[in-house]
Amino acid sequence: MSRRTGKPSYQLPTPKTGGARLAVVIVAVGLAALLVGGAAGYAANGPDRVESAAADIREAEAQRDTQQIIELTETARRLRVEVAPVLSALRAEAPTGGQPGLEQARQWQQTMQRAAAPFADPPSGTTATNVARGGLRGAVEQASLAVETYLLAITGPPAQRAALTALAKRQAAQATAAWSVAATQLDQVNIDAGQGHQHVELDGGNGDGAEEGSGG
């Protein structure tokens, strides 16, 4: 009598897996579509938005810097009227009637204090604009030193008057040179900002010979 056994495995019915496989395929396709759609959305919107935001920032910075340049140029023109006569007087040879006295020197001192006021709390701009502003501030500070030295010359011991007066003249010459460099830099940033040539030299001239407002 043969022993009863089960059917061979190859004769067993195959499990119905078609539905499960179909579900897996559907999920995979859905995920792929989601990933592709997200990537396409980022490609379409992400870089454009970033670039647009960066462009807005650059435009705002350019507008802010242009406004700073205009204001700095106006300040330089106003200060030139006050600073130029002081430096010219300090650099000049002593007139026949003698050197300027204490009252005149005190007036110069007040003038230089007013000239330094606009640079007390400067705004932050681009490097080029900051260099122009720093150059003008340095020129005003050097001119102030020249005035202070001259005050010491006329109020100090007579034996030191000649030496201190000569030092004040040298400081005035250095202030004039510093202003000239700053004026050149300010002229250039005006050109770069589209304002054209803007000349703020102490003597009222234009060393480059360019017409005012040209080259913008």
Results as ranks from 00 to 15, higher is better:
residue 156 G to R: 08
residue 188 Q to Y: 00
residue 2 S to Q: 11
residue 24 V to G: 11
residue 21 R to S: 12
residue 92 A to I: 05
residue 71 E to C: 04
residue 10 Y to A: 10
residue 13 P to Q: 06
residue 116 A to E: 05
residue 123 P to S: 04
residue 208 D to W: 10
residue 166 A to C: 05
residue 61 E to D: 14
residue 203 D to L: 11
residue 92 A to W: 05
residue 212 E to K: 08
residue 7 K to C: 09
residue 24 V to L: 15
residue 215 G to I: 03
residue 179 W to E: 03
residue 50 V to Q: 06
residue 25 V to T: 13
residue 50 V to A: 14
residue 35 L to K: 02
residue 209 G to E: 08
residue 172 A to S: 12
residue 120 A to P: 02
residue 38 G to H: 05
residue 54 A to H: 07
residue 158 P to A: 14
residue 63 Q to K: 14
residue 90 L to C: 06
residue 164 L to W: 10
residue 138 G to F: 09
residue 132 A to W: 01
residue 150 Y to C: 03
residue 149 T to C: 04
residue 110 Q to Y: 05
residue 150 Y to M: 08
residue 194 G to C: 01
residue 89 A to Q: 11
residue 80 R to I: 04
residue 40 A to N: 09
residue 68 Q to W: 05
residue 124 S to R: 09
residue 66 T to K: 01
residue 158 P to R: 07
residue 36 V to N: 08
residue 179 W to G: 01
residue 113 Q to T: 08
residue 189 V to G: 00
residue 79 L to W: 00
residue 145 L to I: 12
residue 33 A to S: 12
residue 177 A to L: 08
residue 69 I to S: 00
residue 92 A to T: 05
residue 169 K to M: 13
residue 191 I to S: 00
residue 88 S to Y: 11
residue 146 A to C: 10
residue 112 M to T: 07
residue 7 K to V: 08
residue 69 I to H: 00
residue 82 E to N: 06
residue 156 G to P: 04
residue 211 E to K: 09
residue 72 L to I: 06
residue 151 L to T: 03
residue 67 Q to I: 15
